[in-house]
Simulated assay, not measured.
Amino acid sequence: MRDNSAWMKSFLADAGAILSPHGKTTMCPALFDLQLADGAWAITVSTLHQIQIARSFGVKRIFLANQLIGRQAIDYVMGELAADSSFEFLFLADSQENIRTIADAARKAGSKRPLHVLVELGYAGGRTGCRGLDEAVELARCIERTDGVLALRGIEGFEGLLKGADNRATLKLVENFVGQMVSLARLCDAENLFAAEPIILSAGGSAFYDVVVEGLGAAALSRPSMVLVRSGCYITHDSVLYAKAVDALRERNPGLASSRGGLTPALEVWAYVQSRPEEEKLIAGLGKRDVSYDDQPVALTWFRPGGGMESPQRLSPDHTVTRLNDQHCHMTIPAGSPLRVGDMIGFGISHPCLTFDKWRVMHVVDESYQVVSSVRTYF
């Protein structure tokens, strides 16, 4: 984890960008502390619960990468801003109606300082965000018409769901979308709609660190700006989903992918062999309640407790996961595999966000798999 954190810190320093890692990935304040200590500008969240957890552990700057919706959420944020002058809060908007609702609530609460908001740009078939530059500029004008109750702080977009036929096609889609974000920022800049600086230009960046930073960094606005990426998964990386993203990064930017040794999978889930009912079939005690299942986990290593092994040994690639039940893992293994009931298997996972949320306590181990500390999650 520390190597991954150092990799991100080095990349951002070279690129002249900043990081607000997505806290939803881990919901682990101990890891928030590591990320903030390594220079993270803020912690990103998605929900009211996540805002509350971050605040309860003393996070001073929160980026809500979502719309601020609902009376309870709006009231909570207003209360925190009123109670703590050092607390900074930023959120997204793609709806004029929502902007008017929030502005009305701020006026009723007697808010003493403006709420900082970023206009979110989306794309057809995507998730949230304005569907076009005209709609987004009009929303920025709507924010300005709140007469200082809300302040337009920047432009945001999420490129993570764009998917082409291959890596090259996906890259083109991402480059075009980032270009649209820059166009929106320039249009708002030309109308002097930004109410504070530095102007924030923010995208997800988890799979396209270099593309996002380079594209948004070329905006050349009339006022100071900064590029903010929000990756949360880099801290543990993974063995499938983001490993593939790094493979794509290696194709287009091999120097960055290999710098400082690159990102390393740092999250494993271990399970006992429960049964070997057939020569080439094995059942391990791990399932959908234990790991993410966007993709099947990958069997990496094995260990035999009390068997005289000094450390876990690598498993050959022909030990494959074929199916997960709630808490059973079906594997196909070679007939000559050494695995037997009672052995342990270390699995690499795909998509850290959906593995962290399965566990309330996770253990940090050294290279010898000795537990050196434990961390708690707050989902």
Rank of each mutant, 00 (worst) to 15 (best):
G70L: 09
D75T: 13
F87G: 00
D104A: 15
A73Q: 04
S86E: 11
R100A: 14
A93Q: 06
G79E: 01
M27Q: 04
K24S: 12
C28Y: 01
S86G: 11
D75G: 11
I102W: 07
L92S: 10
N66S: 13
C28D: 02
G39V: 11
Q35W: 11
Q52F: 02
M78L: 15
L34Y: 01
Q52L: 15
T26L: 07
Q35M: 14
F91L: 10
I69W: 06
T26K: 03
L90M: 14
A65H: 02
L90R: 14
L31E: 05
F91Q: 06
A40V: 05
F32S: 08
E88A: 04
T44N: 06
A30F: 07
L48W: 03
G79K: 00
T44A: 07
F87C: 01
V77L: 09
E80A: 08
A42L: 04
G79Q: 02
R107P: 06
D38M: 12
T101C: 14
A93E: 00
A42V: 04
Q35T: 12
Q50Y: 04
V59P: 03
S86V: 08
R107S: 08
S56A: 14
F63P: 07
R71G: 15
S46V: 12
W41A: 10
A93F: 10
D84Q: 02
M78C: 13
G39M: 09
T44D: 05
I102C: 03
G110I: 10
R100S: 13
I53E: 08
I43H: 04
A54S: 03
S85E: 04
D84F: 13
F91W: 12
H49P: 12
A30W: 04
R61T: 01
E80N: 06
F87T: 00
F63M: 11
L48T: 03
I43Y: 04
A65W: 03
E88F: 08
Q50S: 13
E80T: 08
E97Q: 15
D84L: 08
D75H: 11
G39R: 01
S46T: 12
F57N: 06
S95P: 09
S111V: 15
L81H: 10
E88V: 05
I74Q: 03
T26G: 10
Q67W: 13
F91H: 12
A82G: 07
S46N: 10
C28I: 02
K24C: 09
Y76C: 11
L31D: 05
F91I: 02
E80S: 07
A37V: 02
D38T: 09
H49C: 14
T26F: 04
D94V: 01
I43D: 05
S46A: 14
P29A: 10
V45P: 08
S85A: 07
I99F: 07
K108F: 13
K24I: 09
W41H: 14
Y76S: 12
D104M: 14
F87L: 00
Q72M: 10
I62E: 00
L36Q: 06
A103E: 07
R71P: 15
Q72R: 10
T44L: 05
H49L: 14
P29D: 10
L81I: 11
D84G: 05
A37P: 09
L48A: 09
R107K: 04
R61S: 00
E80G: 03
T26R: 01
F32K: 04
D104H: 09
L31W: 05
